[in-house]
Amino acid sequence: MTAVLDVSGISKRFGGLAAVDNASFTVEEHTITSLIGPNGAGKTTAFNIVSGFLKPDSGTVTFAGQPIEGREPHDIYRLGMARTFQDPRVFQEMTVLDNVMVGVRQKGEAPFWAIMRGAKVNAQWKAARERAERILEDVGLLARAKEEASALSFGEQRFLSIARALVGEPRIVLLDEPTVGLDRSTFGKLVELMKNLVTKERKTILLIEHNMDVVMSISDKVVLMMQGTTVASGTPAEVRGHRSMVEAYLGKRHVAASQ
C-alpha cells in the first residue's frame, strides 16, 4: 500500500498555545484512517492544516506525491481532497440538490460561459446534476432533493454535507466527527456509507471520531493525538493496547467512574 497522504512534523501555534506540535502520520490509499484523541488535542487544527485552511508553522504535507502545505484550500480540493466541517454548515436557503451541486467545478461558472453556454457547458451541467442526484441517492436524500436544506433535520444535514464533499469525486475525504449528534439508525447508515466508500468506490477516508466502537470496527489504521502530538499509530488492536490510550481515554473514564 502506498501512502496517498503523508503528514510530517507539522506544528501550529495560536499565541502561546501549541495546538498542533510536531504531528506526523500517513494515510494509505483505499483505507479508513481514524484520528482520535481527547478534546482540544489538535485534531481539527491538523485537518485545517492538511486542507489548506491554516498554514503550518513548520512541517510538510504531501498529497499524491505533491507538497501541499500552505496552498489554498480551493487548489487542494482540485487536487482531489475534500473535507467536511465539525458542523454540517449546509447552505440553508439553497435546495438540497443545489447544495450538492456547489461541489462540482465546471466551465459554466465562468461568466463568459454562463452567458454563451454551448453544448459542452450544458453537457457538463447535466452531468453534474446527474452525479449530484446519484450521490443524494447514496446518502438517502434523493426524495428531498427539491426541498430547502433548512427543512432537513440535523442528521440529514450532516449527510448532505458529506454528499457535498463527495460530489467532486475526491480521492480522499476528511470527515470531522461525522457521527456526532446522529441517532442510532442514521448512525448505522453512516458507518455503512463510509465502509462502502472505501470498498466499492475505492475512496480513502481520514476520519476524526470520538466513538471508540466505530473507530475500532471500521478503521484500518488509528492515529492517536494528545496535546498536539501524534503519540501512537497502528492497527486498532495495536493502538487500543497502547499505554497512551489508557491515559487518554480509559484513565479519564476510570477517574470519572470512581468519582
Binding site: 482540485r78 473535507r83 454548515r89 447552505f91 436557503e93 439553497m94 456547489v102 461541489g103 457535498r164
Partner: peptide
C-alpha cells in the same frame, strides 16, 4: 451563493 453564505465552505469545495 455559496460564497455569500459561507466563504470557508465555498473554499473547501474548490471555489
Amino acid at each position: 451563493h455559496a460564497i455569500r453564505d459561507d466563504e470557508s465552505v465555498a473554499m473547501s469545495l474548490g471555489i
